[in-house]
């Protein structure tokens, strides 16, 4: 009976439309995840290039832009594919609306990808003298302008920071989703980049010096620990608006988002923290690589949940 199951003061919707489901789905998760890798390798790579001699991180000069280039293209591809009118993407450049973080981000990410392409070509041309053959004009041009790499690199590192964080501004502009309005979102983006960047570089650090891997372990460890603490702070302790509280109920209440969130937290944050900590002294490359893979998987899951749950909430 109704009076036994619904509290007398509770209001119940008895006729309404079907609400929109998840609008920004897995493609946007993948987009954010790939962007974290694309910018993170530059941030972490910059630290390594600053600290170590070229011989100690011999392949970093071309591997870093290559990883970043691939990740950024995945990011741009899924940004485009997610549009309902992909050919009109050009309108962002022809009719830009500068109050939109989507516009500012698209311009910055495009410039970043362009600069990264230049660095990749120069880095590869320098590392592989036979690349493209003797007649290839592009590699010849790249080798003749090898010094451009060092000149452009500081700008690229500087640009990597806003390119990493602009998604947090898009989320802040998505004022209907209060869970994303937290100021911690920007820091989470930065930490995600450090996690993804160090993980991606760990996977390609086979020939590098032991001390470099130790540093990468440390960056990974600190980033996953700080990011985990922030997620827990947001999840359990922070002040939350009623909407954000209701959004988190989709995780609190159990179900698929609960499983995905905690699976992501354990797999991508807690386990890699301990694995990375254990490899600092032992230099166990296999274990460290395992931690890196787990971090990338866990980061995707955590981002996926955080992206989707606010969209389940009825807005009207």
């Amino acid at each position: 009976m109704v009076e036994n199951t619904i509290h007398a003061t509770q209001a119940v919707v008895t006729l309404d439309i079907a609400l929109p489901g998840i609008i920004w789905g897995w493609m946007i998760t993948l987009n954010m995840w790939a962007k974290s890798i694309g910018t993170g390798v530059v941030m972490v790579g910059a630290y390594l290039l600053y600290k170590y001699k070229k011989e100690e991180v011999s392949s970093l000069r071309w591997i870093m832009p290559l990883i970043s280039f691939i990740a950024l293209n995945v990011f741009l591809l899924f940004t485009l594919v997610d549009l309902h009118q992909p050919y009109r993407m050009v309108n962002i450049f022809l009719h830009p609306h500068w109050t939109s973080a989507i516009t500012v981000g698209a311009w910055m990410a495009s410039l970043f990808t362009l600069l990264m392409t230049i660095l990749m070509v120069i880095g590869a041309a320098d590392a592989f003298p036979g690349l493209g053959g003797k007649k290839c004009k592009i590699t010849a041009l790249a080798r003749n302008n090898s010094g451009l790499y060092e000149k452009l690199f500081p700008f690229v590192v500087f640009l990597a920071i806003p390119v990493t964080m602009y998604t947090a501004i898009i989320m802040a502009e998505s004022s209907a989703r209060e869970l994303w309005q937290a100021p911690t979102e920007m820091i989470q983006m930065l930490l995600a980049a450090l996690m993804a960047g160090s993980a991606a570089l760990i996977l390609s650090s086979g020939s590098w010096d032991k001390e470099v891997r130790k540093d990468l372990s440390l960056v990974l460890m600190v980033a996953v620990f700080a990011s985990f603490l922030m997620y827990m702070g947001e999840y359990f302790f922070s002040f939350k608006s009623s909407e954000a509280e209701a959004t988190l109920a989709y995780v609190h209440a159990g179900g698929e988002f609960n499983v995905e969130f905690w699976f992501g937290m354990v797999l991508g944050f807690i386990v890699p923290f301990f694995l990375a900590a254990s490899t600092i002294k032992s230099d166990n490359t296999t274990l460290l690589r395992f931690a890196a893979i787990l971090t990338l998987v866990g980061l995707y899951l955590a981002k996926d949940v955080w992206l989707k749950i606010p969209q389940m909430l009825p807005l009207s």
């Binding site: 929109p20 609008i23 992909p86 309108n91 009719h95 009825p314």
Partner: peptide, 15 residues
């Protein structure tokens, strides 16, 4: 002119 990014759908607090 709309590119179908659905940003507006994410921003409108009234759905």
């Amino acid at each position: 002119r709309c590119i179908g990014c659905a940003g507006c759908m994410m921003a409108c607090p009234y759905g």
